[in-house]
């Protein structure tokens, strides 16, 4: 895979220092019949090469919409991006030309979807679809593209790749299809991969295989990885740092170990507490009361306030910033932030 040309190209681009992807104050809205749904309301995050950022959130939290905005695959309209920057290697993708952006997408940033069956074209063989990537972007011959396709399939450990290269997507099992999706994302050796719920549709025993493969390949290619998921278990297994999203905002950021040990936002804490634990057997589970808000009518102040056990008047009046989180003595905790007026109480309460 690593031809001399590729390597040279990589080196030429290497000098850029700083995060690979830097999202700043991103807003995304959807115009619907019933009004404007504010799906993303000021999201900041960044990913460096070799790093895994997990974006954790429930449906409607804006985690997938953010990813689609980064990829530039939002349907506009109904979607629109009133504000924000998405910097890839320092350059804002929202202001650059269409053609330039198209080159980044797929070549530099690739995406893995939850539902591999609908993301693959059912009437083309997987070998053709994989090879097409090389033919379109690298201009290789048909035979070469096929060879590359087999090589990729072997790389994601699809058994008997040579025999199966001409098979169609439906002839593969769910786990194998997700591997093909990964192979497709890897084909052009991108710098960043965005994986949107990559294992949600898979069985647990297969989930483990696919997650392991993804983590391994990420390390091998030194890629940045944004893992979008609702599964606290998957996050704990592979992430370096976590951003928790709620109603279109990041409510907490933290390195993975710290988040699980000492959450600093009541929502994160509620999520962790509602996981069934052994010592709770036979007792009522902790449940966050209420429902995620309707994006057409996000509650004023902190969006979580109607469900929050700590909510005070200030929470209903003001939107909290993402405050830096520190130890009790004021020692800063690197990479930690919480969008809660009472982060101190939440953090030190345990």
């Amino acid at each position: 895979m690593n031809t001399a040309v590729d390597t040279a190209k990589r080196e030429r681009e290497a000098p850029y220092e700083g995060p690979l992807l830097d999202v700043r104050d991103l807003h995304v809205e959807f115009v619907t019949r019933d009004g404007v749904a504010k799906a993303v309301n000021g999201v900041d995050y960044s990913v460096s090469a070799g790093e895994t950022l997990a974006v954790l959130g429930e449906s409607g939290s804006g985690k997938s919409v953010t990813a689609q905005a980064i990829m530039g695959i939002l349907d506009m309209p109904p979607a629109r991006i009133p504000r924000g920057e998405i910097r890839f290697r320092g350059r804002d993708m929202l202001t650059m030309g269409k053609e330039e952006r198209r080159k980044i997408r797929g070549q530099k940033i690739a995406m893995i979807f939850q539902d591999a069956l609908s993301a693959l074209n059912p009437v083309l063989s997987v070998g053709y679809q994989l090879g097409e990537m090389f033919r379109a972007h690298r201009g290789v011959s048909r035979a070469e593209a096929r060879e590359k396709a087999v090589e990729l399939m072997e790389r994601v450990r699809i058994p008997a790749a040579k025999q199966r290269v001409n098979d169609y997507p439906h002839q593969f099992s769910g786990g194998m299809r997700q591997r093909i999706m990964i192979a497709m994302a890897l084909a052009l050796e991108p710098d960043l991969i965005i994986a949107d719920e990559p294992t949600t549709a898979l069985d647990v025993t297969v989930q483990a295989q696919v997650m392991d493969l993804l983590a391994e390949l990420q390390a091998e290619y030194n890629m940045g990885l944004i893992l979008i998921t609702h599964d606290l278990g998957v996050v704990a297994d592979v992430a370096d740092k976590i951003a928790v999203m709620y109603a279109g905002r990041i409510v907490e950021t933290a390195p993975v170990h710290e988040l699980y040990a000492r959450p600093a936002h009541p929502y994160t804490r509620g999520l962790l507490d509602s996981i069934p634990r052994l010592d709770q057997k036979g007792q009522e589970l902790y449940a966050i009361k209420g429902l995620p808000p309707n994006l057409l009518r996000i509650p004023p102040g902190c969006a979580f306030n109607p469900r929050c056990p700590r909510a005070q008047d200030v929470c209903r009046a003001e939107v909290p910033d993402l405050f830096p989180v520190t130890e009790e003595d004021g020692t800063p905790l690197e990479g930690r932030g919480s969008a809660c007026f009472f982060w101190k109480e939440t953090l030190h309460d345990r």
């Binding site: 058994p159 099992s173 786990g175 194998m176 647990v204 025993t205 297969v206 989930q207 483990a208 295989q209 997650m211 392991d212 599964d231 606290l232 278990g233 998957v234 996050v235 704990a236 297994d237 992430a239 993975v256 170990h257 699980y260 040990a261 962790l272 996981i275």
Partner: peptide, 24 residues
């Protein structure tokens, strides 16, 4: 099956002894 379940505890990441089944 039990060993494959993702555990919501990053501390267990290293110590886990996962049986990765081969094949489908």
């Amino acid at each position: 099956l039990l060993s494959a379940v993702p555990v919501p505890d990053p501390a267990a990441r290293e110590s886990r002894d996962r049986i990765v089944l081969t094949g489908d």
